[in-house]
């Protein structure tokens, strides 16, 4: 071989080796990495990493930074996505040395409306639910009906809410939902609630006031406040929320109420597919 070629090979090898050794030395002899940053990076490995922002921090890395400073952040600003993921929670608990699995419970969002209220007028304003709901309490007959401009679709980090623009309905897929709670804050009608995933049924109506005309006037499946479900319940699985004037299912007990679902004249209590 040409001696010049050998020289070049030797040169490049030497420079490469030199660079490698330099990086090694830098890694070895530079002062220890900032402990907080190191811990932040370690913690961020256990976080979901989809940067939904439901915890209130700008992304998972920022949340990890807060956690590194103070573990109590987990209680103050819980990461719902993490709480729903049993395996992740377990490994994270092992890393922190705390039992987190017991405190966590899978939760999903439910929509307290399935109605078909008529449209009052053709709304052509700013295309967000919040804006539309402020104009004479919405463009639908029922003032509690979902506005139907898809605000919840836009904020969902996992695409669990799909949207039918023609009908103005948003559908929630419970299997995809991670229970982060972003849509709860977004909905101007407060129709969405975060409940335990094994909640057996829910009321698909949020028609609050008894002073107003009952839901039946405005919607084919609105609650008419007849209390039939309470009377039909056998073991207190349905109680009556006097403040809202609506039936109430205790999320702590989570008792199934098949009789109430059967008796409801408007069929507005929806059975959930719990498996």
């Amino acid at each position: 071989m040409d001696p010049l070629t050998i020289l070049i090979i030797i040169f490049l090898t030497l420079v490469g080796l030199g660079c490698g050794i330099a990086i090694f030395l830098a890694n070895r002899f530079l002062p220890e990495e900032d402990k907080l940053l190191k811990r932040t990076e370690e913690i961020s490995k256990y976080l979901p990493g989809m940067n939904c922002g439901a915890c209130g921090m700008p992304g998972c890395f920022a949340y990890a930074g807060e956690l590194a400073k103070d573990v109590d952040t987990l209680n103050k600003y819980p990461c719902m996505t993490l709480m729903n993921d049993k395996e992740r929670l377990k490994s994270f608990g092992e890393y922190l040395g705390i039992d987190l699995v017991g405190s966590g419970q899978k939760k999903v969002a439910i929509v307290h409306c399935a109605g078909d209220s008529e449209t009052l007028y053709d709304y052509r304003g700013v295309g967000t639910c919040k804006a539309a709901s402020q104009l004479s309490s919405g463009h639908k007959k029922c003032p509690y009906w979902r506005v139907g401009l898809g605000g919840c679709v836009g904020v969902c980090p996992v695409g669990a809410v799909s949207y039918d623009r023609g009908k103005g309905d948003a559908y929630l897929e419970p299997n995809k939902c991670i229970g982060c709670g972003l849509c709860v804050k977004e909905c101007p009608r407060n129709l969405i609630e975060i409940v335990p995933a094994d909640m057996p049924q829910y009321l698909a109506c949020n028609y609050l006031s008894k002073k107003n005309i009952p839901g039946r006037e405005r919607c084919s499946i609105g609650c008419i406040h007849c209390r039939m479900c309470v009377r039909a319940s056998e073991h207190d699985e349905v109680s009556w929320d006097e403040k809202k004037d609506l039936p109430y299912f205790d999320p702590e007990k989570r008792l199934p109420a098949p009789a109430a679902i059967e008796k409801c004249p408007k069929k507005v209590i929806f059975k959930r597919d719990v498996s």
Partner: peptide, 30 residues
């Protein structure tokens, strides 16, 4: 000195890449 200027590109790429790594490490640690 050895008259092998024509391998500058290869060598410079090598050096710059590792230099940036070292620089990043240094800033990160200090």
């Amino acid at each position: 000195p050895f008259g092998v200027e024509y391998i500058t590109t290869v060598m410079f790429i090598l050096v710059i890449a590792s230099l940036v790594q070292i620089l990043e490490l240094t800033i990160r640690r200090t």
